[in-house]
Structure formats: C-alpha cells, structure tokens
Nucleic acid binder design. Structure first.
Length: 289
DNA sequence: TCCTATGATTAGAG
DNA sequence: CTCTAATCATAGGA
C-alpha cells in the first residue's frame, strides 16, 4: 500500500519533502516523531499513553489535512491569492489519498476481524483436547490486535508522507513563486529609492505598501530585505534603476512643491548625486544605519 | 537549455 | 521579534 509511490511519483517532490528542515514545523515534528517511534523507541514520553497517542496524532493530522471544510492552504507567510486551479487540483489529490487510506484501513480492519475469529475457532477446537483459559484467549487476541494496529500505524504513516509530499508539491511557496506585478514592483522601488538613505519602512509604511501592491506585509518585508542586500552588494548594477526612480520621485516632488507654492523644499526630497540618488550613509561602507 | 532576476526560506545576530 | 547574509527554487528571457 505504498500510496506514496502510487499517487505521487515525482522523485523531486520526494526529495523536497524529505528535505525536512524546510517543512512547516508542525508537520515536520509529527513526521519525525512518527519515524522515531516506529523505529521503536520510548523516548521522552511527554505524551498521554492509553489511547496510543501516536495514532491519535496521525488521525488528527489526517483529519486536519482533509476535513470537509477546505484545508487551510497557507504554507506560512505568503498569502497566495491565485491558486484556485492548483488548489482544486490539490484537493482532488488529497481526496484521492484519503480514499485510498480509508479503503485500506477498512481492509485491515476486516482482515483483523477475520483473523481473530479464525484464531478463536482454532482455540475452540483445541479446547476439546486441552483446557484453555480465558486468559490465554485474551492474550492471543491482544497479540493479534497489536500486530494489526502496527500495520495500521504504517498505513497512517505512509498516508501522512503522501500528504506531505502533496503539500510540498502544491503548497510550497517557493515552488509557486510568482513575480509581483509591474505596478507593485514600481511602488516598492519608488519607496525604496526615495528612502535610500534609510530604506526601512515602518510597520505602518509596510502595511500601506502591502495594501497598495496587493501583497502581504511579510512579502513587503521580504522584498525590502532582498532589495537592501542586493542593492548593497552591487550598487553599480542598480545605478540605472536608481536614477530612474529618483527622477520619477523628483517629478512628483516638484509637482507637490509647485502645488504648495513653496520653494524651500526643492532640495530635500531628492538631491541627485552622481545621477539621482542620495549618497546615503547606508551604502558607503557596507554598514547599515 | 542555460543564465539571470527574484521571491521565499533559513541560520544566526541583536 | 527584525534584520542580514546565504541559499534555494522558480520565472522569464536569450
């Protein structure tokens, strides 16, 4: 019942899924625990014991992963917005996995019952030739059930793995990287180059930028983080862009100034220096602020 | 198909 | 938590 190989063949996805350190922590820890425990170990049991916590957790995960309400898609930070097609595909595959899981589970349950009755029959037969205590019967049944539940556990485990591979395939934000819209980049760049001397938008500024660009605040943060470091690393490469945006903001600033009928400000918003942007303490020695 | 740009994620510092 | 720096993985162009 290798659901994993059956439904999702991509070696790449597998590799990705096994690349544990970039999984979402919750899933990751679950998987790790599964692996550890199935590799038989008792380890730091901070868990409750009687109703097999492991199975519970797996159950919970499977439930959470594919309950009737749409599974929460957010991999993490990025609030993806355009995933309707892919998402339905994801859901379809998820349903498929769950279906396989349930049919398999049923099979196992059935097999377990059959086997139990079979053993019971054997015992009954034997009881004619030798005395068999209820205790012994109980013991046998216990053994059988333990065996089967370990199989069940494996089933759940591989289902979880399959689900996780699925997730990593469809929901991993990195894989779904889309460039921001032209306007969004425009807005971000405008802000960046007009605050070159201190390109660290406040939380409010980030929120506003996020709104204007229809992206999330953390995407704005990512963008500025990337931009700062990349700008710093290769200022030359960004010269042209810098000039462009400096000119742009200069124009808008000029308009604003004209409207305000004030000439006091003309040199503060943008003071073209070697082609349009402030010399900035930010870039001079690679140190920021 | 290779190369660069770019958004996201990570570890680690503060 | 935010930030940097490195890195990953994809998008998009030549």
């Amino acid at each position: 019942m290798t659901i994993t190989d059956q439904s999702l063949d991509e070696a790449q996805a597998k590799k990705h899924a096994l690349n544990c350190h970039r999984m979402k922590p919750a899933l990751f820890s679950v998987l790790c625990e599964i692996k550890e425990k199935t590799g038989l170990s008792i380890r730091g049991a901070q868990e409750e014991d009687p109703p097999d916590p492991q199975l519970m957790r797996l159950d919970n995960m499977l439930l959470a992963e594919g309950g009737p309400p749409p599974p929460p898609p957010p991999p993490a930070s990025a609030g993806s917005s355009d995933n309707s097609i892919e998402h339905s595909d994801y859901r379809a595959k998820l349903t498929q996995i769950r279906q396989i899981y349930h049919t398999e589970l049923e099979k196992y349950e059935q097999a377990c019952n059959e086997f139990t009755t079979h053993v019971m029959n054997l015992l009954r037969e034997q009881s004619r030739t030798r005395p068999i205590s209820p205790k012994e019967i109980e013991r046998m049944v216990g053994i059988i059930h333990r065996k089967f539940s370990s199989i069940q556990m494996q089933l759940k485990q591989s289902t979880c793995e399959a689900v996780m591979i699925l997730r990593s395939r469809f929901l991993d934000a990195r894989r779904k990287r889309r460039n921001f819209s032209k306007q969004a980049t425009e807005i971000l760049n405008e802000y960046f180059y007009s605050h070159l001397s201190n390109p660290y938008p406040s939380e409010e500024a980030k929120e506003e930028l996020a709104k204007k660009c229809s992206i999330t605040v953390s995407q704005v943060s990512n963008w500025f983080g990337n931009k700062r470091i990349r700008y710093k690393k290769n200022i030359g490469k960004f010269q042209e862009e810098a000039n462009l945006y400096a000119a742009k903001t200069a124009v808008t600033a000029a308009h604003a100034v004209a409207a305000a009928v004030q000439n006091n400000q003309t040199n503060s918003p943008t003071t073209p220096n070697s082609g349009g942007y402030p010399a900035s303490c930010y870039q001079s020695d690679g140190r920021i602020q």
